[in-house]
Structures are given as C-alpha cells and as structure tokens.
Write a protein that binds this DNA or RNA. Sequence first.
RNA 1: AGGGGUGUCGCCAAGCGGUAAGGCAACGGAUUUUGAUUCCGUCAUUCGUAGGUUCAAAUCCUGCCACCCCUGCCA
Length: 545
Amino acid sequence: MVEATNFIEQIINEELESGKVNSVYTRFPPEPNGYLHIGHAKSLCINFGIKEKYNGKCNLFLDDTNPSKEKTEFVNAIKEDIKWLGFSWDKETYASDFFPKIYELAIELIKKGKAFVCDMNAEEISQNRGTLTQAGKESPWRNRSVEENLDLFTRMKNGEFADGEKCLRAKIDMASPNINMRDPVIYRILRQTHHRTGDEWCIYPMYDYAHPICDYMQGVTHSICTLEFEDHRPLYDWVGIELGFAPKPRQIEFARLNVTNLVMSKRYLKKLVEDGSVEGWDDPRMPTLTGLRNRGIPAQALKDFCGRIGVSKANSEVQISYFEACVREYLNANAERAMAVLNPLKVTITNYPENQTESLDFEINPSDELKRTRKIDFSKTIYIDQDDFSLAPPPKYFRLKKDGYVRLKSAYIIKCDDVLFNEDGSVKELLCSYVPESKSGSDTSGIKTKGVIQWVNAEKGKDVEIRQYGYLLNDEEYAGQDFSERMNKQSVKIFNGKVEPYVLDNADDRPYQLMRTGYFKLLNVKDKTILSEIVSLKDNFNVKK
RNA sequence: AGGGGUGUCGCCAAGCGGUAAGGCAACGGAUUUUGAUUCCGUCAUUCGUAGGUUCAAAUCCUGCCACCCCUGCCA
C-alpha cells in the first residue's frame, strides 16, 4: 500500500483496502477543441501520476461528442504536449469510438422506459425546466409508448427530422432540486461533419450521458474531473445504475488550477490566436503547454510545480511566483552558465598587451559534479554592462566605480583608472588596468573584491536581440479592457546587447543562465531568432539599501 | 431563494479526537569568483464564526457567516 498524498489517493487506498477495486484505471479526457494549457497539466499529473504510483493504467481519452468544435489539429497538438511532459498513455480512445455502443444503450434505456423522444424545441425545454427554486414541468411527450419512442429514435438516427426538431431525454425527475436530473437531453440531432466519423451520424450523445458509458467501456475505475461536475455526478451514477454497470466507475472531483495573472480560459486564448494578438497557440506569452515549452520552461519543472501545489477541493489561486520558483530551481541545477552584457560599455585594459588573447576556463555550472569548463577569450578590449559601473555609487555598491576594484568573472581583477565621456556627458569608455597575478584560479594578488561582474570580449561578442516576455495579464488593472490592449501593456522590451558567441553558436535550444541576469533561451518567433527570458534571477538587479 | 461544494499563516497545503507538517513568499545571519546558489535561523497558543459534547476538538454535534458551482439540444 502506498502512502496517500492527497484526498483522491486516499479514496483509492480505501477502495483498494476494502476490495472494492483491485487495480486502478484513469483517463485524461480533454475535448479536442483547443490546445492544452497549464491547467490541464495539473489534471495530466493527477491522472498519470496515479497510474504510475499504483502501477495502474491511464488512457488518453478524447471527448469528441460535439463535432461543431472539434478538430484533428487539436488532437495532434494534445498528443504532442502530453509526450513533451513525458507521460505515455495505455490506449488512445475517443468518445466517437463508442458511438455505436452509446446508441445501442440508448435503445436499452428506451426499452426500460427510462428515456423518451421529446418533440419540444430547445427553447421550450428550457422554459419547462423550472428554476433553481421551482420544479420543472413534465414534457407532454414524456409518456409515449416504448414502441413509439423506439420508432422515433430510429428515425432520428436515420435523418428523418431536422436539427433540433426532436431529442432524446432521460426520464428521471422534473421536480429534482438538482437541475441536471430534470429529464436531461441525452441525444441531439446535429448535422455536422465529425472529425473522425464524418457524416456517418446525424445524432450525437451529450457529455453527461456518453461520459459514464465511455469510462465503463474502457475499464476506467476512477473518473477524475473538475469541481463544476459535482452536480453532474448523480446523473453520472444514474446512467451507470440504469445500465447495470458493474463495477461502476467512480467520479471524483478536484479544484481546477488558477494562477494569478494568467489568462486561462480556452475561449479567450482562442480569441487571442484568432484575432492575431499573439503569434499563435505556441506564442511564448501563452499559458499553453506549447507556449511554455517554446518559452523554455522545462517539462520537469512544470511537473514538479503540479506536484507541489497539491490536490484539494478548495477553490484557490496559486501565485505565479510559486511556478517561477519551480522553474528557477530546476534551471539553477541544470542550466549552463553564460555571460552577456545587455547595455554595453567599452572597457580598455590599458596595461594588457595589444593583440594578445588569452584562453580562460569558465565553469559551465557551479553544481556540476564533473566541474566541467569551457574556454573563453580575454583580451585588451572588452564590454561590461553599463549597470555594472557607477559614477555615483550608492552605499554597498559592490561593482565597478572610479578608482575601485572589481573582479571580471573567471578572469582578472581590474581597477578603473579613468572615465571617458561623450559630449552629452554620458559615459563613453572606461580605462582600466588589470592585476596580472589575480588570474582566476591562481590568484596571488591578495586583493579581495566584493563584486564580480560579467564581461564579453569585444571581438568575439555578437549582437543579438533580447526580449523579455511577460505572461498574459489577467488582473484588475486590466478588467474590462480588450485583450489586445493587455498584450500591448506587457509589451516586449528589446535590448541590443553583446552576447557571448557560445550562447548563439550552441546548436540545441536548452535554456542558459546569463550570469547576474536571468534564465534565457534561444527562441524563434516569426522566423526571427531572439534570446528570450524565461525567469529572472532573484533580486539580481537590486542594490540592497 | 432550491441543490451541490469549500473555508487551516500573504499564497498553496498536511491534519481524520490527544494538544498545528511541509513548500512558495517574507525576514534575520553565515558562506560565495553569479548581490544567484547553498546553508542556518525566525515566521499560526491557533484552524470562517458562535455555541455544545468530551479529561481532551482544526478534527464530533448545532446554529450562523463568507465564497464558488448549477436553470446549453457545450464539455
């Protein structure tokens, strides 16, 4: 018996112990009507997490009962995203696989007197449903004979009626305080080409009716969904009981993931893509899995995040800082280090020989057990970041100042002797001298510097566009505003900095930590290669007061 | 208003009658050739609230309050 870490596992443990079930089968059930986002990652981790933990099974179940919204493009994207997270499903199933069975069981319900064909249109049904406090009215067609219902339902299937002209309803209780139980529609007539079954069907089952059947047919033991389906559970169970499912799958609900400042509604995300506010579903600003992947978020970090936020039934909103902490933690341990200057300031080492280049060792990652290094070139002219030099340094400023010393990361200690100015008074160039015996790794100078700054060889450095992407904002400040406007508000900052060639020349697109800057990744946006920020280094730009 | 849910530190979240885990954030301090990392320390006499039961309650009972979901031929 494994130890439960949340209430769902607790339920499973109890059922395993009591012998109600002897193995666990879950399913991840997206509707292929859009791309997966960070919220789906939570569901993915729960369902596949249970499969792994209990040595059970988990299917990828595409819930495609509404052909007007679903597309093959989306199912392919969904599969890609799940693979990226490193999960593998036992079977790939579709609600549409079960259409014949679902139809057959509808006939069984009719024969049992538990379903009837209703001639009212959608508006009439809605009007007769009653309200939250008042019971609904029974349909005048509710007591048709089994024979008539069978005949009508067959003719519905055969396309003898127009869309919406008739529907099949479960016969439950129009006075139920649970509105979902007031003779819910379970089949509608809909002439829409289905992405898999084409025009084979002109009637389609509703989610509430199809889902329990699909679960049962797949051998699912635990049907995990979000909180808004709690009210549907009695109907889920009704279908299972009337159809004699044994063992009947158990529906368990959990609170969906909300993250501060993240737009998560599929509807809005779709709108952003369609009206061109973003480059696409994979735009690095999007909270979609493909967007996060494109941005450079490691799958491991996302999974770690999902595990750490836990699972409960309390509506909650997780701070984005928690997510970023998970990303930073993973990247800190795994990302290679590189140097870059975002705002270049030329530095000439006056006492360094002209035309000399020295190859120095640079640590790839301080936590690397093998202590691997790579070579970087040092020479007379370099660039440092403008922020790393101050003419009027505040207290506790550790970096370079006039007549002060600072260490160039992995190189030498330098002293700023002179400052050259532009005509407008801004700093043009620094004239520094280096301390030859302070070479990194063999420092005998005895000079201690509190500050260490990054630098780039003037010859080797390359210009690159660097963008800092924010997330789609969804806070009060933007309430009521158009989304395209929100996009502009968090618009992209562009720097033209010198970046070490190592970063650019590296063929793969792993994220890097630019020293003292943040975690970056090489991105391709609209056929343009840029360097984009994933997360910042904590407090790295702030001089403490 | 009828039904279904949920309320434990700024944010997540354990806890299931025996006297409040952990993580994120924050704040001290140490180490540091990234002001990062790492490290060590601090951070709920109190569990929405008012009563009750009990030797003992976040956990059981009752009332109240707050918030979320439900009146698609969407999922």
